[in-house]
């Protein structure tokens, strides 16, 4: 599914990702954990093609297609999805208009017919209910005035509607109370169908109680320094990141 080889990425001429390798097979759930500044968000921005995130070396492919050659929207329609850590507010553009345009684009890329407005309304309402957001949120501006938890749920709703091949969840658990965390985790789990893959980025083991990963990787200093099964997350939780070999805390990441 996703294959990253020897990836180097920099932001403002500062190298953040160093020779990173990662392979995710269809249906697998991988978790990436790591301290602040390890390069977790940079990795997700570099893969989705955010402006200013330069790839100096290496490759990243999705089902064999070269992601790095594609425009941002082409990566999305190729099946890559990012649930943002800090979703942007876009007043004046209604959530509904945004979701419809997104789903239209995805369906066009898959040679499926556009939903009619009434068909889409049904689908959107169902997804909205699934993540426990009031239907009025469909009418509001994109993320406008949403609380942190509501924004995270709106991201999961988009994932449910867009049906990606690979979803990157960038700290989808941060700032959530336990009830909201369950809603988010249930939303993610509902999309696990044995084919769709997930890359779950998190600081804490807590989310992984709800979303059982197949693999856990520790990212530090822009590369994966340790990989293992779910038990690795428990060890990290018990011992903290200092338990790992020393890493450079100065690297900047989580840039918003």
């Amino acid at each position: 599914m996703l294959e990253i080889k020897n990836l180097q990425a920099s932001v403002a001429d500062k190298q953040i990702i160093n020779n990173l390798d990662l392979k995710i097979n269809p249906g697998e759930v991988h978790a990436i954990m790591g301290p602040n500044g390890a390069g977790k968000s940079t990795l997700s921005y570099a893969l989705t093609g955010r402006d200013g995130y330069e790839i100096s070396q290496g490759s990243a492919t999705l089902d064999g297609e070269d992601l790095l050659e594609m425009e941002v929207e082409e990566r999305a329609t190729a099946g890559l999805f990012l649930a943002f850590q800090y979703p942007v507010e876009i007043p004046g553009v209604s959530n509904m208009e945004f979701l419809k345009a997104s789903v239209d684009a995805q369906r066009a890329a898959r040679s499926l017919e556009k939903y009619s407005s009434s068909e889409f309304l049904k689908v959107a309402k169902a997804a909205c209910k699934q993540v426990n957001l009031p239907l009025s949120f469909l009418k509001r501006g994109v993320n406008e005035g949403f609380s942190g938890g509501e924004k995270k749920r709106n991201e999961i709703m988009q994932m449910i509607l867009l049906q990606p091949k690979l979803a990157i969840l960038d700290e989808s658990d941060s700032g959530l109370d336990i009830d909201a965390l369950k809603v988010v985790a249930d939303g993610i789990n509902s999309q696990r169908d044995g084919k769709r893959s997930f890359l779950v980025i998190t600081h804490y083991q807590r989310l992984l109680d709800y979303i059982k990963p197949d693999f856990v990787h520790v990212l530090a200093d822009g590369k994966i320094v340790k990989s293992g099964g779910p038990e690795l997350a428990l060890e990290l939780e018990a011992h903290g990141y200092s338990w790992l070999e020393s890493y450079d805390r100065n690297a900047e990441d989580e840039s918003e």
Binding site: A76, F84, V88, F98
Partner: peptide, 17 residues
């Protein structure tokens, strides 16, 4: 970037924004 990351083309996103 947010709109494009959902598959919306730059030109369409420009109109929306």
């Amino acid at each position: 970037y947010y709109l494009q990351s959902r598959g919306i083309s730059r030109s369409e996103a420009q109109v929306m924004l």
